Amino acid sequence: MSLRLSAVILPVDRWHEGGRGKWQRAEELGFHAAYTYDHLSWRSFRDGPWFGALPTLTAAATATRRLRLGTLVTSPNFRHPVTLAKELISLDDISGGRVTLGIGAGGNGFDATALGQEAWTPKERADRLGEFLPLLDELLTEPAVTRRGTYYSADEARNLPGCVQRPRLPFAVAATGPRGLDLAARYGQAWVTTGDPKLFEEGTPEESVAAIRGQVERLGKACAGIGRDAAGLEKILLTGFTPDRGRPLESLGAFVDFAGRHQELGFTEIVLHWPIPDSDFAADETVFEEIATEAAAQLG
């Protein structure tokens, strides 16, 4: 299967001061999709500009024609399925059916406490996603939904006319643990990983590939457990969080080598961060554009 290349454009630029241009350039370069983080702020960018994901994607939808758009990823940390479903249906309509929802359990960053709550434990995050995702699936596929849950409920929530994409827009479920992988197998049209975070600081690229191979194998078992062929599930690698860090963006050859090793594991899409000077995602933009336009042909 051919490998698709996509980009993450962090929402750090004012729309009329470079923001629009990046999304349009992503389409010009031939990227399959362009995503953005769905956070209230993020790590080293916390004290600088950071705009909302869904309004940014709505603007991007009106500025592009072909490019798929999405979050990478949304979490329950500050979202509710009822309001999120309404916004996603609106975005899917405005974009003409070009939206993918990346979704996961979230973590302990700024979003976890920004609404004044205590940070959830890993178990509670998993419990919440286990309710959030099935309810969101129902909200995006049924005209009216009533459901009572421990964390999330809906009372005659209406979502007419539904998604442009049928039966709903696709979910790309970020997961590495057993409960998340089961959700990916049941509800995902794609699965997302960033690799094994335990290896980021001191692991080797070889150890990372082995760890990701294990994740792919566990995803396969989760799919087999419900009678689904894992080959039909798209597999997305969000780069920048493996021990390779920024090295794959140092040259076209380095990226082709990196991408080829992961393509052999079954990945169908690799996502690159758009370069941001003086940040964790600093890179040579000329090399980045060369990768965007030439790597896919070399990878086949």
Rank of each mutant, 00 (worst) to 15 (best):
G260V: 07
Q117C: 11
G96Q: 05
F78C: 12
L252N: 08
G96E: 06
R179C: 09
G300D: 04
R245V: 12
E131A: 10
R43I: 11
H273P: 00
K198W: 14
P197L: 07
T286C: 01
V173P: 05
K198S: 14
G96A: 11
E269V: 00
T194P: 01
I276S: 10
G227T: 10
F171A: 04
A34I: 05
I291V: 08
P49I: 00
G232P: 01
I103D: 02
G107I: 09
G30C: 02
T146Y: 15
R168D: 08
F110G: 07
A292E: 03
G116S: 14
E207I: 08
W23Q: 02
R218F: 04
R166F: 02
P81S: 07
A224T: 11
E269D: 13
R179M: 02
Q263M: 08
L238V: 15
P170M: 11
R43C: 08
A26S: 13
G203F: 15
F51H: 15
G214E: 14
R65Q: 11
T83G: 12
G195A: 05
P76G: 05
S75F: 01
L237A: 06
Q24D: 05
L3M: 09
L57M: 11
R148F: 08
Y151C: 07
D137N: 10
P161Y: 10
E206R: 07
L265M: 07
V271I: 13
F110N: 13
W23L: 04
L160Q: 09
Q165L: 10
G97Y: 06
W42F: 13
V145A: 07
A63G: 12
G149H: 10
T100G: 00
A282G: 11
D196G: 07
S6H: 04
R228F: 11
W120G: 01
H80K: 10
L29H: 04
I226Q: 08
Q24C: 09
E269T: 05
T56Y: 00
W23K: 02
G253Q: 15
G162Q: 14
P248V: 07
S95E: 03
E269P: 00
V271G: 03
L265F: 05
G220H: 08
D111R: 00
L5T: 05
L299V: 10
F288P: 03
I89Y: 05
P161N: 12
G177D: 14
G180T: 06
V73S: 12
W15F: 01
S44D: 15
I103F: 00
G97A: 10
D13G: 04
I94M: 09
L139V: 03
P170N: 09
P248E: 06
T242C: 13
F267T: 01
F267E: 02
G246E: 08
R125Q: 09
L57G: 09
L140R: 00
Y37N: 06
G260Y: 09
F288N: 03
G109D: 15
D196W: 01
G203D: 12
A224P: 08
S279E: 11
L249K: 03
F51T: 14
D280E: 11
P49V: 00
A190D: 07
D280F: 03
L237Y: 10
L265Y: 02
C223G: 02
W15C: 05
R128D: 00
P143F: 09
A172E: 09
A60W: 02
D137Q: 11
G106P: 03
W23S: 03
P167Q: 12
D92T: 14
L233T: 01
R43V: 12
D111Y: 00
Q24R: 14
L252I: 06
A282T: 07
D155M: 13
K198D: 15
R261W: 06
E87S: 12
